[in-house]
Computed example of a mutant assay.
Amino acid sequence: MNKTKISIFESAIKVFSISGYDGATMDEIASEAGVAKGTLYYHFKSKEEIFKYIIEEGMKLIKIRIEEVLKREDNSILKLKALCKVQLSLVYDNRDFFKVIMSQLWGQEARQLQLRDSIQQYIDYIEEYLEEAMNDGFIKIGEKSFMAYTIFGTLCSAAVYELINEDKNNIDEVVDNLMNYILRGIEA
């Protein structure tokens, strides 16, 4: 991404998180990015195109960061734990992006369908690590798609918990609790 696109990317996320998709305007995004409206339209034809761009780029950045961290792990269960930690860290570090994603998951507009497709690709990515952990005997063999959705949903819930209870727990503690509940359940 060049400097202008980075600025537009970051500004659009901020504007969408504050104003919502429907309330955000191209003028507001251009102003927040510190670019002329013509410059914004040079790079993006519409607000929908900007939204699509921030989802694509945001999800790419998440995947890149996860892969960087997971390269250092040689054990599939440690990879799952690292994946959880990275996803939660990314939510904390990019609260506005998370807010935009959560606000646009429902509905039938093209942007919402595209967002759900991006989430599905991410869940497929989680499935790969679950399959590896199953093959290594660290977790029992089961419906990996459902497990991946469960992990994703649990991570989203943990992120909401952390956002509401900010600074009350550290991320390592949250990930340890999360992995304990996922791997061992909550049954007494």
Rank of each mutant, 00 (worst) to 15 (best):
Met1Arg: 11
Asn2Ala: 09
Asn2Met: 11
Lys3Cys: 04
Thr4Phe: 07
Lys5Phe: 02
Ile8Gln: 08
Ile13Met: 10
Lys14Ile: 07
Ser17Val: 12
Tyr21Ile: 10
Gly23Gln: 07
Asp27Gln: 14
Ile29Thr: 04
Glu32Met: 12
Gly38Val: 09
Thr39Asp: 03
Leu40Tyr: 03
Tyr42Ala: 06
His43Asp: 01
Phe44Tyr: 08
Phe44Met: 01
Ser46Thr: 15
Glu49Trp: 01
Phe51Ser: 07
Lys52Leu: 12
Tyr53Lys: 02
Tyr53Gln: 02
Glu56Ser: 13
Glu57Phe: 08
Met59Ala: 11
Leu61Val: 03
Leu61Ser: 07
Ile62Gln: 05
Glu67Asn: 13
Glu67Thr: 05
Glu68Ser: 06
Lys71Val: 08
Asp74Val: 04
Ser76Lys: 05
Lys79Asp: 03
Lys81Trp: 03
Leu83Gln: 01
Lys85Phe: 05
Lys85Asn: 03
Val86Leu: 00
Gln87Cys: 04
Leu88Asn: 04
Ser89Met: 07
Ser89Lys: 11
Ser89Gly: 11
Leu90Cys: 09
Phe97Leu: 08
Phe97Asp: 00
Lys99Trp: 00
Val100Thr: 12
Leu105Phe: 07
Gln108Cys: 04
Glu109Pro: 00
Arg111Asp: 05
Leu113Gly: 03
Gln114Tyr: 15
Arg116Lys: 12
Gln121Met: 08
Ile123Asp: 03
Tyr125Thr: 01
Tyr125His: 05
Glu127Pro: 00
Leu130Glu: 04
Ala133Val: 07
Ala133Glu: 07
Met134His: 02
Asp136Gly: 06
Asp136Leu: 06
Gly137Pro: 04
Lys140Val: 13
Lys140His: 09
Ile141Arg: 14
Phe146Met: 12
Phe146Ser: 10
Tyr149Leu: 08
Tyr149Ser: 05
Thr150Met: 14
Thr150Ala: 14
Thr150Asn: 11
Cys156Arg: 13
Tyr161Ser: 10
Glu162Trp: 08
Ile164Lys: 13
Glu166Gln: 14
Asn169Gly: 00
Ile171Leu: 15
Glu173Asn: 11
Val175Ala: 10
Tyr181Trp: 12
Leu183Gly: 09
Ile186Asn: 14
Glu187Ile: 15
Glu187Cys: 13
Glu187Gly: 15
